[in-house]
Design a protein around this nucleic acid. Structure first.
Ligand SMILES: [Mg+2]
Ligand SMILES: [Mg+2]
Length: 253
DNA sequence: TAACCGCACTGATTTA
DNA sequence: TAAATCAGTG
DNA sequence: GGTTA
């Protein structure tokens, strides 16, 4: 498991411990370790193999053990067990302004709210306002926040997908069958928010280009594949469209 | 081993 | 209206 | 949980 993923696990552990109302200092210990590892330049695997993880500030015996497990096996029995105590979607709730561990815990225990979808239903049924610590104002705000959020599903910040886009462009340019390669649409125009990535490739070997595209390491799944247009979903979640044209018509595409 | 780990302040909301 | 609670900020 | 005295 890579460093970024380890950091993510430690942060998730901290969040779930909050839901259990664990000792706040213990919670902070996991958060601190995550920050510290984020800033750590070295290779975690090497450190783990040499039993030197504790050299990282904020990482002691207990957390080092969990990191070793994660780095080497990709899992942690502690984390798995902790995770199993809650529905996966409960983590989404922390992203809603006004909700913290205590309120989320109440929503979960009293209304079995385990995701934003659950919360939406509970709010619409008026159940949330019945809970101690909640009221109609809070319930209405949650409904508003959730519906606003739904509008932005499928949107990506340019910076969040630029690396994938450029890598794809570079690799397409490396392909011997590609004579011209460029981006198009909102990404080409550098819009701050993009909903998909568009690429145009001029080639005499459209089949080979398409094949290369759908087989690329960044591609998560293929949603459509035709003679001139192909759509895939990348690992980041964004959709990428490829248009393949002849060299003659490229200037007009 | 035991103490300490940042914390005050503010605003919004709910409850007494 | 006053106190309490919670989340968020710096 | 980690660090420090
Ligand atoms: Mg250490
Ligand atoms: Mg577009």
């Amino acid at each position: 498991m890579k460093k970024e993923q380890i950091v993510d696990v430690l942060e998730t552990i901290a969040t779930l411990l909050e839901l259990q109302e664990e000792n706040p200092f213990k919670i902070r210990a996991y958060t601190n370790a995550a920050r510290s590892i984020e800033a750590w330049g070295g290779n975690l695997r090497e450190l783990a193999e040499e039993n030197r993880l504790q050299e990282i500030p904020g990482v002691g015996k207990a957390i080092a053990g969990k990191i070793s497990e994660l780095v080497l096996t990709g899992e942690s029995t502690f984390f798995a067990e902790l995770r199993s105590k809650f529905p996966p979607g409960i983590l989404e709730l922390f992203g809603l302004p006004g909700l913290g561990a205590k309120k989320i815990k109440a929503l979960y225990e009293k209304l079995q709210v385990g995701s934003i979808a659950d919360l939406k239903k509970a709010c619409e049924m008026g159940r949330v306002a019945e809970l101690p610590g909640f009221g109609k104002t809070t319930q209405d705000k949650l409904i508003a926040t959730i519906s606003n959020r739904a509008k932005h599903v499928g949107s990506f910040q340019l910076g969040a997908v630029a690396a994938e886009a450029e890598e794809l462009l570079d690799d397409l340019r490396q392909h011997p069958g590609a004579t011209q390669v460029s981006s198009a649409g909102s990404y080409r125009r550098r819009k701050e928010i993009v909903r998909d990535l568009d690429f145009i490739v001029a080639t005499q070997a459209p089949e080979a280009i398409t094949e290369f595209f759908v087989g690329h390491a960044l591609v998560e799944s293929v949603s459509a594949r035709g003679a001139t247009k192909t759509s895939v979903r990348l690992h980041s979640g964004i959709q990428a469209d490829l248009r393949v044209v002849s060299t003659a018509e490229y200037p007009f595409a």
